[in-house]
Design a protein around this nucleic acid. Structure first.
Lengths: 325, 325
DNA sequence: GGCGATTCGGACAACGTTGTCACCACGACG
DNA sequence: CGTCGTGGTGACAACGTTGTCCGAATCGCC
């Protein structure tokens, strides 16, 4: 900027004013400065600018589990769009479900003085962020609640969705319903399982722990579990899979065997039209989840100081076929 | 830092040394400083640090078309992983295929003084970046080449892949091969089309422009085009779709009609095992594409000064069935 | 005990920018 | 004719950190 000022024959400050479109600068000087800027290829240093003027870096951080996962990619896309509308850049980092890494990444983002944070929590204790939050960095949690920290949160109605889906299975006459899940350690899984339990008991369909299988990590594992369950003397007539990776394996195995068991899956499918099986899913709007969280974040950044709130977004039961008992 | 220094009863500089793990500080003073840091909740300001020490911000920019698209999400994931190995954060932005927006985003990232840029180009003129590149910001282009700028580039062998695939169709006896593409304006599409042309001519299979359809944006459009082509008096016996969105629509329509035409698709499918159709695809390793580009970028950031190079990664023909003519 | 070498702390400036304030010229107003 | 306000400009300090350099304390050695 000093060089630009020298070249244009004005003071440093005048260059600053021109660069920031400040008023009260003679049009002629503006011309000269802009010419010098162009000639010297001057680019304003955003770091120095943020440092000096203090408050805003026009950057927000997004912490998710894994960028390549379509669910998180959708979240990132929606968050990036909202950020862009606010003239803000997005720093994205993956915790890979590792609480230690989550903590380190969040600290690093804070060190970069982001204006705010959007977090899909991995760990279950976020009290280490209390200092930052109290110092004024807004944080919005999404998909899962924070642990040990009062903050804005946007969730899906996992429990209600599971309840509605299982209720539907029961209405169709199913009583022996197998439930396959990834990991009971994950909040969303617990909620979905609780929802299923809510719907089973009152309906006279026992919640049979022998039909609940935890630790189903991938489609292949799901297929094996389905196979094993179908070989029981009293096989389930319906399968509720708690995420779409599992649903995929369930369908493959049922299809392979020519079974007509009903399938209910949490999470919708992109290519559901191609799935060779009548499939009912509990769907939700991932973009809406991220958009809601991001908009809440920017309201906080904009200065909104109300009490932290938790928003729960609805799920929808999408029936593409449901074989009765 | 001043407060920490006061509290620990040392000078500012000593705090700086402790915070940066510099040698030659008495263990006892280190203790005191760390205690003060903890008590006051001090966090180093990464902005100020980068500003002062000049060169590195430990941040790189990634510019893609659209985060939510699985192809770009995979790229982002791989790039983020490499970045993490280098202790670097990733700023991700979407150009949405808009050259003007691409330019603005790249400028913005440069203003943030990123250490380097990973770019999937949207526009076809990147000469506006010459100044930055010459000033020392390394840039690596991936998936598509830059326009009007000499820079490192990592590409896929689109042309070779298409050639091999179409050659395979021809070997299976197909002569009337329809080709469906998104937009001829996109580099990768042109390359794939050229590859197909390479393979058709010499094989005595005419490159029939009536069987080439541009502007097929989504699965529904693809299905309509397939339907129309099949209704011709002399329908194609094989379909080559130049991206996987189109492949999806082609398969849907063929499946609906019970047609036994062959399908060759560029891009692999996640759920190919569920696709109710024998499908041959030209596959490639998206993660490898991004990893190669990112590693090249970090070598540049690390100071490698060799002549810019272009790396072309191979594609692979994956046959999951190919009905003969 | 004197001397240089080693070790470590601290004062100061600088990174590139912007906020504050002061200044100047000019016209308006009493 | 003097004062006041206003538009236009610049000098200076400050943001939070780190590199440079100087000097003080300590140590070993002759």
């Amino acid at each position: 900027m000093v060089d630009v000022a020298t070249r244009a024959g004005v003071s440093l400050k005048t260059v600053s004013r021109v660069v920031n479109n400040a008023p009260h600068v003679q049009p002629e000087l503006v011309e000269r400065v802009l010419a010098a800027v162009a000639e010297l290829g001057f680019r304003r240093n955003h770091l120095a600018s943020s440092l000096r003027s203090g408050q805003t870096t026009a950057t927000v951080g997004l912490l998710i589990e894994e960028i390549a996962n379509p669910f998180y990619a959708t979240i990132a896309g929606a968050a990036a769009e909202v950020a862009r509308q606010h003239g803000t850049m997005l720093i994205i980092a993956s915790s890979e479900e590792d609480p230690a890494r989550e903590q380190q990444l969040l600290r690093d983002m804070c060190a970069r003085r982001v204006d705010g944070l959007l977090v899909v929590p991995a760990g279950d204790d976020h009290s280490f962020m209390r200092a930052e939050v109290e110092l004024g960095t807004p944080v919005v949690f999404l998909d899962r609640p924070a642990g040990g920290l009062l903050a804005d949160t946007v969730l899906l109605d996992n429990r209600g969705g599971a309840r509605a889906g299982v209720r539907r299975l029961v209405e169709a006459g199913h009583r022996r319903i197998a439930i396959l899940l990834d990991s009971i350690g994950v909040y969303t899984m617990r909620e979905r399982l609780d929802g299923a339990q809510d719907a089973l008991g009152p309906a006279g369909a026992p919640y049979d722990t022998r039909l609940v299988r935890d630790g189903v990590r991938d489609p292949a594992a799901a297929a094996r579990v389905v196979s094993e369950l179908l070989d029981r003397p009293d096989p389930p007539t319906a399968f509720f899979s708690l995420n779409n990776r599992i649903t995929l394996g369930v369908i493959e195995e049922l299809h392979r065997r020519g079974s007509d068991a009903a399938v209910l899956g949490f999470d919708d499918f992109d290519m559901s039209s191609l799935v060779p099986y009548p499939l009912t899913v509990i769907a939700y709007d991932t973009r809406e989840l991220a958009r809601t969280a991001a908009e809440l974040l920017f309201r906080r950044i904009g200065g909104e100081r109300s009490w932290p709130r938790t928003v729960v977004l609805p799920t929808e039961l999408v029936e593409r076929g449901l074989p009765p008992r």
